[in-house]
Amino acid sequence: MDNFLILKTLDKAARRIENTEALENISGDILSSKSIVLNFPSFMDGRAYSQARRLRRAGYKGTLIAAGDVRADQARQYARVGFSAIFSKNNFDGAISQNDLTRFTDHYQSSASDEQSIYHKRFPNTAAKESGGGAF
């Protein structure tokens, strides 16, 4: 999570994907985008978490940006499903989101940025690939 970015401006070339798209099939065109913006129309609308998950699973390597009604206290979740940046025009409290990102050292699920779940740590000899508990 060291490279997680808080953006004040958005690259106009970034590709926007609406959160009504389930992304069951992801085209090569999407995968080769340099940056993709996923939208949270309201922070309560969590569809983009699953979209991010699917994009990373499909092998997307570019910058994945959470935009819309994003909140500092949610930074950890954005990062753990595969977002690499948040974009907010609001006065975003960077200290709080940084705190949120680093607060937990261990998780019951493995993630894109944290390969080792608690299950893996409970059994150090288990291969990372079999760490279990939900993968990202």
């Binding site: 969590g46 978490y49 998950r53 499903v81 608690i118 939900g134 990202f136």
Partner: peptide, 13 residues
């Protein structure tokens, strides 16, 4: 319980 605790994807269902 463990799997669902702070599950990052399923907190705003």
């Amino acid at each position: 319980r463990q799997w669902s605790t702070f599950h990052p994807e399923f907190t705003y269902l």
